[in-house]
Write a protein that binds this DNA or RNA. Sequence first.
DNA 1: CTCCATTCGGCAAACGTTTGCAACAGATTA
DNA 2: TAATCTGTTGCAAACGTTTGCCGAATGGAG
Lengths: 341, 341
Amino acid sequence: MAVTIRDVAKASGVHISTVSRTFSAPHLVNPETRTRVLATAEQLGYRPNRAARALITGRTHNIGLIVADIANPFFPPMIKAAETHARRRDYHVFVADTDEDPVVEADLVRALAKQVDGILLCSPRMSDDQIELARREVPLVVVNRLIDGLPAVVMDVGTGARSAVRHLVDLGHRHLVYLSGPRGSWTNREIRKAAGAAARAGGAELTVLGPHQPISSAGADAAEAVLATGATAVLAYNDLMAIGLLQALQDRGVAVPERISVVGFDDIAAGALVRPTLTTVANPTAAAGRAAVDMLLQQGDDGATGQVTLRTDLVIRNSTGPGPYAPAGATATQVAAYAKE
Amino acid sequence: MAVTIRDVAKASGVHISTVSRTFSAPHLVNPETRTRVLATAEQLGYRPNRAARALITGRTHNIGLIVADIANPFFPPMIKAAETHARRRDYHVFVADTDEDPVVEADLVRALAKQVDGILLCSPRMSDDQIELARREVPLVVVNRLIDGLPAVVMDVGTGARSAVRHLVDLGHRHLVYLSGPRGSWTNREIRKAAGAAARAGGAELTVLGPHQPISSAGADAAEAVLATGATAVLAYNDLMAIGLLQALQDRGVAVPERISVVGFDDIAAGALVRPTLTTVANPTAAAGRAAVDMLLQQGDDGATGQVTLRTDLVIRNSTGPGPYAPAGATATQVAAYAKE
DNA sequence: CTCCATTCGGCAAACGTTTGCAACAGATTA
DNA sequence: TAATCTGTTGCAAACGTTTGCCGAATGGAG
C-alpha cells in the first residue's frame, strides 16, 4: 500500500541501501545519484517509516511531555513552545496529563519510556526517589523542580518572590501575607523561603497561610483569613489564586489596591483580563519548554546533566499600590521606576 | 539492553510465538502456560516494543491531535479529555500546534500521517479541498467543522446562538451586535446565521461587526464601534473577545450590564473570573474530545463516517441584564427561569 | 603500466514483533 | 479401530529500515 524504500530504489535504479543513505547519510552518496533518488522519492511521495527506523536505530524521534494538568493555564504556553521547538528538530511530542496524581504519573512514565527518546517531566508530583528510579529507564529532564544529579530547568522563583516583596515594602507595606500553594511543590517552598527572607530584610512581617490548592476558588476561600490577619498586601502562590482572592475581596467591598495590594505568580493571560489588572511575577514558561527540549536532546551526546535556571520578572500592573507607610504620593509604577535606578 | 520477547521466552521455557500470543491473543494459549509467561514477563519487566509491533501490524496505537493554538484557552480542556480518553484505550497522543497557519497544518498532517492510526483535526484552517486530500493519506476526524462525507464532531452553536439572542430579546433588547470571529471559521458563519434568524424572529435588529481575530484585544478594539451602533447588547464570537470588550467598556465608564449586555461563547474558565462574570454559551469541549477519539478508533472497524453534534448550553451570569424594552423588574436570571417553563 | 587510495554502491544481517501454517496429542465420533 | 476434530505449541517468514563489510571503479602517483 504505502510506498517503501524498495519502491524508490526500484524506480531510481539503485539499491535500497543507497536510498537509505540518501536520507540518513547524504554525504556518502554521489550528488548526482542523490538528486535522482530524492526526485523519485518526492515524486512517489515516499516518507521513511519511523517505526522501522526506530526498530533498528533504537531512536524513536519522539519525546514525551508529562504535565500535572493540561487545563491549568500555566502549562499550555510551555507545551506549545516545547512542541514547536521539538518539531523544528524533527521530533514529535506525546503530551500526557496526570491529573495531579503521582501514581498516574509513574504509570505514564513507564508506559512512555520505551516509546520515546526522553521525557520532560513538568512540575512532577512523584517523590524524588521515584523520579530517580524512572530516570534509569529513560532519559529525563525535570521542569520546575531541583533534584541532585538530575538535569533540570527551573524558574528563579526565589528572585521573583524577593522582588515582589521588595516592591511591596517599597510601596510602604509592612505586614504581608503569603498564600501558600500545594504541599508537595518545590516552587512553593522556594517562594516561601525567599519571601520570608526578603520581608525580614525589609523590616516587614510575613504571615503564611495555607497550604492551598492552586486554583482560584482556593484564593477566594482564603479572603476571610487574609482580612483577619490585618495585612495590607498579599503574595499568592500563583495567579489563579491571586485572581480568586482579588474578586472575593472586591465582592466584599474591599478595595484593591487601595486597601489591600495583591501580587500573583506566573503571569497567565487571565491576569491582564481582570480588573484591576494583576501585578505578578512572570515565569518564562515558553523559554523553559524550549530549554528543556534542548537539554533532553543534548543528553544523548554526552552525559552532562546541567541545571538551567531561568529569570523571572516582576510585572507591575494595577493590583498593587501604596501601603500605610508609603512615601508621600507614591504609586506602584513610580516606586518601581525608582527602584530600578 | 532492554528485555525482549526472546528473554521472556527463554526464561519461561516456551517459544517466542507463545509469549507473543500471551499478550496479543490470550485465548489461544493454555491458561497454565499463560500465567507462567505472564509471571516471568512481569518479573523481568518486559514491555512489548511498540515500534516492532507497529512495523508488522501496521497499527501504531498512536493518534495525532492537531489544533490551531494550544495556548488558546478553548483547546486545553479538549486536549486533556481526548488524551485521557485515548490513553484509557491504550493509545498515545501526539499534540501539535499549527499557529493558525494552514500551511503548517498541511505539513503537520503529512508528517504525522505515517506515524499514527488517525488524526483529530480541531478547528482546521485548511480549505475543505485540502482536508479531503489529507483524508486519503490517513483516517481523519474533524472537530468544529462540517464537511460532506467526512466524520466530524461539531458543537451545536446555532442553537447556542439562538438561545443567547432569545435571552437578550426576552430581557428587552431590540438592537444587538454580533462581533464576528475570523473569516474562515465555520463556527463563525453558523453563529452569525443563527443569531440573525433569531433576532429577526424576535423583532430585533442585528448589526454584524468584523471579522476580528478571536483574541481579547480585538474585543477591546471593537468597543468604540459597538458603542457607535447604539446597540444595547452584544454577542461575541468567543469569550476572549467578550472579555476584552467587557473591560474596554468598563474602562470607558460604560456600565455592564446596565448600559450594555455582553454574551460570550465557549465558557472558558476566565469567564467566571472577570467581573461582571460573563454570560456565555458553554461548549462541551471535553465531550467533543472524547467523542472525536471514539469516532476515530471506530473508523477502523467499519467505514461508517457519522457526524456528531453536541449540545451547547447558555450559562447565565452577570454580564447580561434588562434592556430598554424589559418587562418591569426583569433580571437576567428571572427571565431565564421564566423562559424555561 | 602498476599500484594504491578514495569514493561509491551493493549485499545481507539485524532490530522485535506478529501470524499463517504445520505438527502433535488427546478426545470424540463413526 | 480408524478417522476426525480440537486445543496448544513451534517454526519461519515478514514488516521497512540501517549499517558493517566488501568489491568495483576511478584517478593520481611513481
